[in-house]
Amino acid sequence: MMDIERKQADLIDHFVKLASGQKGSALGSVIVEATSHPSLFAFSEILAVPSVAKLEGTENSVYLELLRLFAHGTWSEYKSNSGNLPQLVPDQVLKLKQLTVLTLAETNKVLLYDQLMLELDVTNVRELEDFLINDCMYVGIVRGKLDQLRRCFEVQFAGGRDLRPGQLGSMIQTLSNWLATSDNLLFSIQEKIKWADTMSELDKKHQKEVEDRAVEVKKSLSLKADVDFRGLEEIYSEPGGVMDYEEDRSRPKRRRHPIS
């Protein structure tokens, strides 16, 4: 994308300088060349050249209208006003159709094949898909996915066009809304991070308490087992206990005489 932007900037600078040194019909030729160039898709800087603005109200004003069309218009707009504009050469027709796709992508990221074929004067799906692949995506002005099943073009990226008169205020408002939404989202994420950190600390504290309690229980059980074992030792070692009983069993018993 950086190469495309750099090439655009170089072309704009070239045609601005070229237009600044021309007037009248010669300036018209510069405008036709600019609008026919396969790599130029922005024209507002050329429109701002004083000599171009001076075409207004002259016999060559149609070239000014032509340049305005390529800056802001679409193929369907050209068709509806073609009688008041110079006839387009094939390269200009292609360029205007490419720009039409960019305009459609400004407001909708899913472009239906039927809508595109109508706007671009394309008669079949194969021709439309070839145009989108070869003349739009390959050129680099859009990226997206062709969905033949749903008959639509899913736009993932589209280059921007020149701002229309009066569109700047709307764009500033849109960017301001986007900035406010981003700030709110960032605040929400930060709050969730704080909550997660708090829950993590509580979980660690609870885990430590459980581990400490387990250690205490183990100590208690160990102490009780030791006490019980010592108690048994004392029982078996007392006089008259088991050992005395065994000794008594081994002692010879006195025999009693039978009663006669």
Rank of each mutant, 00 (worst) to 15 (best):
V62F: 01
Y63Q: 10
E65M: 11
L66S: 07
L66Q: 12
W75D: 10
S76M: 15
Y78R: 09
K79M: 14
N81G: 09
L85S: 10
L88S: 04
V89P: 00
Q92A: 12
L94Q: 06
L94N: 05
L94K: 05
K95I: 05
L96D: 08
K97G: 03
L99Y: 01
T100K: 00
L104D: 02
A105K: 00
A105C: 04
A105E: 02
E106L: 02
E106R: 04
L111W: 05
L112P: 00
V122N: 03
V122C: 06
T123E: 15
V125D: 15
R126L: 12
R126F: 06
F131Y: 04
I133V: 15
C136Q: 06
Y138M: 14
G144N: 11
L146P: 07
L146I: 15
Q148F: 06
Q148P: 04
L149Y: 06
C152E: 15
E154H: 07
V155Q: 01
Q156T: 14
Q156C: 05
R161C: 03
D162P: 01
Q167G: 00
L168F: 02
G169N: 03
G169Q: 03
M171G: 00
I172G: 00
L179A: 12
D183P: 00
D183R: 14
F187R: 15
F187E: 15
F187Q: 15
S188C: 04
S188N: 09
I189V: 11
K192Q: 15
K194R: 15
